[in-house]
Design a protein around this nucleic acid. Sequence first.
DNA 1: CAGATAGTTCGCTAACCGTCGTACAATTAG
DNA 2: CTAATTGTACGACGGTTAGCGAACTATCTG
Lengths: 110, 110
Amino acid sequence: MNLHHPSREDLDVSMVLHALSDPHRLHIVKKLAEHGAEPCSCGGFGIDLTKSTLTHHFRVLREAGVITQRPAGTSKLNSLRREDLDARFPGLLDAVLAAIPAPPAAQVPV
Amino acid sequence: MNLHHPSREDLDVSMVLHALSDPHRLHIVKKLAEHGAEPCSCGGFGIDLTKSTLTHHFRVLREAGVITQRPAGTSKLNSLRREDLDARFPGLLDAVLAAIPAPPAAQVPV
DNA sequence: CAGATAGTTCGCTAACCGTCGTACAATTAG
DNA sequence: CTAATTGTACGACGGTTAGCGAACTATCTG
Protein backbone atom coordinates (compact mmCIF):
# COMPACT_ATOMS: atom_id res chain seq x y z
CA MET A 1 0.00 0.00 0.00
CA ASN A 2 2.06 2.86 -1.32
CA LEU A 3 1.36 6.20 0.32
CA HIS A 4 0.90 8.62 -2.50
CA HIS A 5 2.09 12.17 -2.06
CA PRO A 6 1.44 14.66 -4.84
CA SER A 7 4.54 16.38 -6.15
CA ARG A 8 5.01 20.06 -5.49
CA GLU A 9 3.97 21.09 -8.98
CA ASP A 10 0.81 19.06 -8.72
CA LEU A 11 -0.48 20.86 -5.66
CA ASP A 12 -3.92 22.30 -6.34
CA VAL A 13 -5.29 25.29 -4.47
CA SER A 14 -8.85 24.09 -4.34
CA MET A 15 -7.74 20.71 -3.09
CA VAL A 16 -5.56 22.27 -0.41
CA LEU A 17 -8.30 24.66 0.66
CA HIS A 18 -10.77 21.83 0.82
CA ALA A 19 -8.41 19.79 2.95
CA LEU A 20 -8.09 22.74 5.29
CA SER A 21 -11.81 23.45 5.44
CA ASP A 22 -12.56 20.91 8.13
CA PRO A 23 -12.18 21.86 11.80
CA HIS A 24 -10.63 18.54 12.76
CA ARG A 25 -8.10 18.71 9.98
CA LEU A 26 -7.34 22.30 10.82
CA HIS A 27 -6.62 21.21 14.34
CA ILE A 28 -4.28 18.51 13.10
CA VAL A 29 -2.43 21.00 10.94
CA LYS A 30 -2.10 23.40 13.82
CA LYS A 31 -0.62 20.73 16.06
CA LEU A 32 1.77 19.66 13.34
CA ALA A 33 2.89 23.24 12.87
CA GLU A 34 3.64 23.53 16.55
CA HIS A 35 5.60 20.32 16.68
CA GLY A 36 7.75 20.98 13.65
CA ALA A 37 8.53 17.62 12.09
CA GLU A 38 8.43 15.74 15.33
CA PRO A 39 7.12 12.25 16.13
CA CYS A 40 3.52 13.22 15.51
CA SER A 41 1.77 9.89 15.19
CA CYS A 42 -1.83 9.83 14.11
CA GLY A 43 -3.08 9.36 17.63
CA GLY A 44 -2.23 11.85 20.33
CA PHE A 45 -3.94 14.76 18.69
CA GLY A 46 -6.62 14.79 21.31
CA ILE A 47 -9.30 14.34 18.74
CA ASP A 48 -12.36 12.42 19.73
CA LEU A 49 -12.81 10.36 16.59
CA THR A 50 -12.56 6.75 15.58
CA LYS A 51 -9.34 5.36 14.23
CA SER A 52 -10.85 4.89 10.81
CA THR A 53 -12.10 8.44 10.72
CA LEU A 54 -8.67 9.68 11.68
CA THR A 55 -7.14 7.65 8.89
CA HIS A 56 -9.59 9.31 6.54
CA HIS A 57 -8.66 12.83 7.61
CA PHE A 58 -4.94 12.15 7.44
CA ARG A 59 -5.36 10.75 3.97
CA VAL A 60 -7.25 13.82 2.80
CA LEU A 61 -4.46 16.01 4.12
CA ARG A 62 -1.78 13.84 2.56
CA GLU A 63 -3.44 13.55 -0.85
CA ALA A 64 -3.93 17.30 -0.95
CA GLY A 65 -0.23 17.67 -0.32
CA VAL A 66 -0.59 19.33 3.05
CA ILE A 67 1.25 16.70 5.06
CA THR A 68 3.73 13.88 4.61
CA GLN A 69 3.22 10.49 6.16
CA ARG A 70 6.20 8.26 6.77
CA PRO A 71 5.81 4.80 8.27
CA ALA A 72 7.87 4.23 11.39
CA GLY A 73 7.35 0.96 13.14
CA THR A 74 3.70 0.48 13.83
CA SER A 75 3.10 4.22 13.70
CA LYS A 76 3.19 6.86 11.06
CA LEU A 77 5.09 10.07 11.38
CA ASN A 78 3.21 13.04 10.07
CA SER A 79 4.75 16.34 9.17
CA LEU A 80 3.66 19.51 7.44
CA ARG A 81 4.90 20.10 3.91
CA ARG A 82 5.84 23.63 4.77
CA GLU A 83 8.42 24.16 2.07
CA ASP A 84 6.27 22.89 -0.74
CA LEU A 85 3.23 24.82 0.40
CA ASP A 86 5.21 28.02 0.85
CA ALA A 87 6.77 27.58 -2.56
CA ARG A 88 3.51 27.08 -4.39
CA PHE A 89 1.19 29.23 -2.27
CA PRO A 90 3.30 31.83 -0.47
CA GLY A 91 1.80 33.02 2.76
CA LEU A 92 -1.19 30.74 2.58
CA LEU A 93 -0.18 28.29 5.27
CA ASP A 94 0.89 31.00 7.68
CA ALA A 95 -2.33 32.90 7.15
CA VAL A 96 -4.38 29.80 7.79
CA LEU A 97 -2.36 28.85 10.84
CA ALA A 98 -2.82 32.32 12.26
CA ALA A 99 -6.56 32.06 11.66
CA ILE A 100 -7.09 28.75 13.40
CA PRO A 101 -9.24 29.24 16.50
CA ALA A 102 -9.70 27.04 19.54
CA PRO A 103 -10.03 23.27 19.30
CA PRO A 104 -12.78 22.03 17.00
CA ALA A 105 -14.97 20.87 19.90
CA ALA A 106 -13.19 17.96 21.45
CA GLN A 107 -11.94 18.04 25.02
CA VAL A 108 -13.33 20.54 27.48
CA PRO A 109 -10.77 23.28 28.10
CA VAL A 110 -12.24 23.82 31.63
CA MET B 1 -36.07 37.87 1.13
CA ASN B 2 -33.42 39.38 3.34
CA LEU B 3 -29.88 38.74 2.24
CA HIS B 4 -28.05 37.59 5.30
CA HIS B 5 -24.43 38.55 5.75
CA PRO B 6 -22.54 37.24 8.76
CA SER B 7 -20.99 39.92 10.91
CA ARG B 8 -17.24 40.25 11.02
CA GLU B 9 -16.92 38.51 14.38
CA ASP B 10 -18.97 35.60 13.16
CA LEU B 11 -16.66 34.77 10.29
CA ASP B 12 -15.47 31.20 10.54
CA VAL B 13 -12.22 29.99 9.03
CA SER B 14 -13.48 26.58 8.01
CA MET B 15 -16.53 28.11 6.41
CA VAL B 16 -14.45 30.63 4.50
CA LEU B 17 -11.99 27.99 3.38
CA HIS B 18 -14.80 25.76 2.28
CA ALA B 19 -16.35 28.57 0.31
CA LEU B 20 -13.00 29.11 -1.37
CA SER B 21 -12.38 25.46 -2.09
CA ASP B 22 -14.42 25.40 -5.27
CA PRO B 23 -12.76 26.36 -8.57
CA HIS B 24 -15.80 28.27 -9.81
CA ARG B 25 -16.06 30.26 -6.62
CA LEU B 26 -12.33 30.90 -6.65
CA HIS B 27 -12.73 32.34 -10.10
CA ILE B 28 -15.53 34.59 -8.95
CA VAL B 29 -13.45 35.84 -6.06
CA LYS B 30 -10.52 36.51 -8.35
CA LYS B 31 -12.67 38.57 -10.70
CA LEU B 32 -14.14 40.49 -7.82
CA ALA B 33 -10.68 41.25 -6.50
CA GLU B 34 -9.67 42.64 -9.86
CA HIS B 35 -12.74 44.84 -10.16
CA GLY B 36 -12.57 46.32 -6.70
CA ALA B 37 -16.13 47.08 -5.65
CA GLU B 38 -17.35 47.71 -9.15
CA PRO B 39 -20.68 46.81 -10.79
CA CYS B 40 -19.99 43.10 -10.70
CA SER B 41 -23.37 41.59 -11.30
CA CYS B 42 -23.77 37.85 -10.95
CA GLY B 43 -23.59 37.26 -14.67
CA GLY B 44 -20.64 38.45 -16.70
CA PHE B 45 -18.14 36.25 -14.95
CA GLY B 46 -17.71 34.11 -17.99
CA ILE B 47 -18.71 31.03 -16.08
CA ASP B 48 -20.52 28.34 -17.98
CA LEU B 49 -23.15 27.49 -15.43
CA THR B 50 -26.88 27.85 -15.09
CA LYS B 51 -28.37 30.89 -13.40
CA SER B 52 -29.59 28.80 -10.52
CA THR B 53 -26.19 27.26 -10.00
CA LEU B 54 -24.65 30.71 -10.00
CA THR B 55 -27.15 31.81 -7.40
CA HIS B 56 -26.05 28.86 -5.32
CA HIS B 57 -22.35 29.71 -5.52
CA PHE B 58 -22.91 33.36 -4.74
CA ARG B 59 -24.95 32.43 -1.74
CA VAL B 60 -22.23 30.14 -0.43
CA LEU B 61 -19.73 32.96 -0.77
CA ARG B 62 -22.05 35.45 0.87
CA GLU B 63 -23.04 33.23 3.77
CA ALA B 64 -19.40 32.46 4.44
CA GLY B 65 -18.77 36.18 4.61
CA VAL B 66 -16.51 36.33 1.59
CA ILE B 67 -18.66 38.69 -0.46
CA THR B 68 -21.40 41.24 -0.05
CA GLN B 69 -24.47 41.29 -2.24
CA ARG B 70 -26.42 44.49 -2.63
CA PRO B 71 -29.55 44.65 -4.77
CA ALA B 72 -29.40 47.31 -7.46
CA GLY B 73 -32.30 47.41 -9.82
CA THR B 74 -32.77 44.04 -11.37
CA SER B 75 -29.17 43.10 -10.65
CA LYS B 76 -27.09 42.44 -7.59
CA LEU B 77 -23.82 44.13 -6.96
CA ASN B 78 -21.22 41.81 -5.55
CA SER B 79 -18.08 42.90 -3.81
CA LEU B 80 -15.35 41.29 -1.79
CA ARG B 81 -15.42 41.82 1.96
CA ARG B 82 -11.74 42.67 1.94
CA GLU B 83 -11.67 44.69 5.13
CA ASP B 84 -13.53 42.15 7.20
CA LEU B 85 -11.50 39.25 5.86
CA ASP B 86 -8.22 41.05 6.39
CA ALA B 87 -9.24 41.99 9.89
CA ARG B 88 -10.18 38.50 10.94
CA PHE B 89 -7.74 36.47 8.86
CA PRO B 90 -4.81 38.69 7.99
CA GLY B 91 -3.04 37.71 4.82
CA LEU B 92 -5.42 34.91 4.00
CA LEU B 93 -7.29 36.55 1.16
CA ASP B 94 -4.13 37.86 -0.48
CA ALA B 95 -2.47 34.48 -0.25
CA VAL B 96 -5.46 32.77 -1.78
CA LEU B 97 -5.75 35.36 -4.53
CA ALA B 98 -2.10 34.93 -5.37
CA ALA B 99 -2.58 31.19 -5.55
CA ILE B 100 -5.52 31.18 -7.90
CA PRO B 101 -4.55 29.62 -11.21
CA ALA B 102 -6.15 29.84 -14.64
CA PRO B 103 -9.93 29.76 -15.10
CA PRO B 104 -11.68 26.72 -13.66
CA ALA B 105 -12.38 25.22 -17.09
CA ALA B 106 -14.97 27.45 -18.66
CA GLN B 107 -14.34 29.60 -21.69
CA VAL B 108 -11.48 29.03 -24.11
CA PRO B 109 -8.65 31.36 -23.09
CA VAL B 110 -8.41 32.77 -26.67
C1' DC C 1 -49.77 47.17 -19.96
C1' DA C 2 -46.23 44.20 -22.25
C1' DG C 3 -41.78 42.58 -22.69
C1' DA C 4 -37.14 42.04 -21.40
C1' DT C 5 -33.70 41.30 -17.92
C1' DA C 6 -31.61 39.37 -13.56
C1' DG C 7 -32.02 36.48 -9.85
C1' DT C 8 -34.59 33.34 -6.72
C1' DT C 9 -36.98 29.24 -5.44
C1' DC C 10 -38.17 24.53 -5.72
C1' DG C 11 -37.83 19.97 -6.69
C1' DC C 12 -34.69 16.36 -8.24
C1' DT C 13 -30.41 13.59 -9.18
C1' DA C 14 -25.85 12.07 -8.71
C1' DA C 15 -21.90 12.52 -6.35
C1' DC C 16 -19.33 13.34 -2.30
C1' DC C 17 -18.21 13.62 2.71
C1' DG C 18 -17.76 12.63 7.60
C1' DT C 19 -18.57 9.16 10.58
C1' DC C 20 -18.81 4.60 12.28
C1' DG C 21 -17.91 -0.56 13.00
C1' DT C 22 -15.79 -4.57 11.76
C1' DA C 23 -12.23 -7.03 9.91
C1' DC C 24 -7.51 -7.08 8.51
C1' DA C 25 -2.19 -6.12 8.19
C1' DA C 26 2.15 -4.99 10.17
C1' DT C 27 5.26 -4.20 13.73
C1' DT C 28 6.94 -4.50 18.45
C1' DA C 29 7.03 -6.71 23.19
C1' DG C 30 6.61 -10.61 26.15
C1' DC D 1 4.53 -18.01 19.03
C1' DT D 2 1.23 -14.78 21.26
C1' DA D 3 -0.48 -10.61 22.41
C1' DA D 4 -0.69 -5.73 22.11
C1' DT D 5 -0.45 -1.60 19.46
C1' DT D 6 -1.22 1.25 15.35
C1' DG D 7 -2.99 2.05 11.50
C1' DT D 8 -5.67 0.55 6.83
C1' DA D 9 -9.54 -1.37 3.94
C1' DC D 10 -14.13 -1.86 3.14
C1' DG D 11 -18.95 -1.29 3.50
C1' DA D 12 -22.68 1.23 5.24
C1' DC D 13 -25.28 5.25 6.84
C1' DG D 14 -27.12 9.92 6.72
C1' DG D 15 -26.28 14.52 5.46
C1' DT D 16 -24.51 17.85 2.22
C1' DT D 17 -23.37 19.58 -2.29
C1' DA D 18 -23.13 20.91 -7.16
C1' DG D 19 -25.55 20.81 -10.93
C1' DC D 20 -29.90 21.14 -13.79
C1' DG D 21 -34.65 22.74 -15.47
C1' DA D 22 -38.86 24.96 -14.88
C1' DA D 23 -41.69 28.24 -12.73
C1' DC D 24 -41.68 32.43 -10.36
C1' DT D 25 -40.60 37.53 -8.66
C1' DA D 26 -39.04 42.00 -9.30
C1' DT D 27 -37.38 45.74 -11.85
C1' DC D 28 -36.68 48.53 -15.71
C1' DT D 29 -38.04 50.03 -20.52
C1' DG D 30 -40.94 50.55 -24.22
